[in-house]
């Protein structure tokens, strides 16, 4: 007898395969919400054909992520750009360190986390970039996978959209940012590699902006909208959850590529509460 859940365990039953029509066994199980590889609170029901994802159903979206308090303050009053951009760089680097850990670069991941604690405006990330390129991180699992369509990228917003070549960033409308010579960075490819590079590029840009802003003591001038590391947040609303994109994005990907793809995307909604100081 096949299929069903004898002894409370999912048991596979042969079904058409995604790839070549050979009838193999799909395996269904749930992942999350306590697995540190996935965003906190995220759980899904997955069906695998061998190592390949045939279907994924999100059963619980991740908890809203709390941004540093400065991003919410920026909606109330002009805030120093130096502080805002430093917080942005830290946020992106934290995402990158998670992606490094997921792809087996534990040491490099810890190095990045340590850098975050001592990050100063004007710091250069060139060394980190060269290092990651030399060890082949940009060719590790999932690098060329997880390609977002334009609609999907727009829905997610933020760095993921810019990595898909959509040159949208609220900061370019802010005259203060224009004074600092801000240029929108956007990538192409829209795959995991593009998003990893986008984080790195934006973190580096944020650090150099922060250095210039600190010299000139510049504050933001636009209090209606702020570009958070997760996307545009205005008085009207903050970036909402985009986890359901995964249901279209992941089928057909091999497991490790799917996990790398999840780690390359920041999909959780932004919480109404700010991150509490440590």
């Amino acid at each position: 007898m096949m299929g069903g859940k004898p002894y409370g365990r999912a048991m596979a039953m042969t079904a058409d395969d995604l790839r070549d029509g050979l009838q193999l066994d799909p395996l269904s199980f749930s992942v999350g919400p306590f697995w540190p590889v996935l965003p906190p609170g995220f759980s899904a029901h997955v069906t695998l054909h061998g190592d390949v994802i045939a279907e994924i159903q999100v059963t619980s979206i991740p908890y809203p992520v709390a941004l540093p308090a400065i991003f919410r303050q920026a909606l109330e009053k002009p805030v120093p750009i130096a502080e805002l951009e430093l917080a942005r760089a830290c946020y992106h680097l934290r995402q990158l360190s998670h992606a490094l850990w997921v792809n087996g670069l534990e040491s490099a991941s810890l190095t990045v986390l340590q850098r975050i604690h001592a990050l100063q405006p004007g710091d250069s990330l060139a060394g980190l970039r060269t290092w990651l390129r030399r060890v082949g991180f940009f060719f590790s699992a999932g690098a060329e996978k997880g390609v977002l369509g334009r609609d999907q990228a727009e829905k997610i917003g933020g760095p993921a959209a810019r990595a898909a070549g959509i040159a949208q960033d609220t900061r370019q409308d802010d005259p203060q940012y224009q004074r600092l010579g801000f240029q929108v960075i956007y990538g192409h490819g829209s795959n995991c590699r593009a998003r990893w590079q986008q984080w790195l590029d934006e973190a580096e840009q944020a650090l150099s902006l922060a250095a210039r802003a600190r010299e000139q003591a510049v504050c933001t001038s636009d209090c209606d909208r702020v570009e958070t590391p997760r996307g545009v947040m205005g008085r009207g609303g903050s970036p909402s959850d985009a986890t359901f994109v995964l249901q279209e994005l992941l089928p057909g990907l091999e497991w490790s590529e799917a996990i790398a793809t999840i780690a390359s995307l920041d999909l959780a909604a932004v919480s109404d509460y700010a991150e509490e100081g440590v």
Partner: peptide, 12 residues
């Protein structure tokens, strides 16, 4: 046998 036959995980 696990791939092609029923009872793939073989523990039942």
């Amino acid at each position: 046998m696990m791939m092609f036959m029923m009872n793939p995980a073989g523990l039942n």
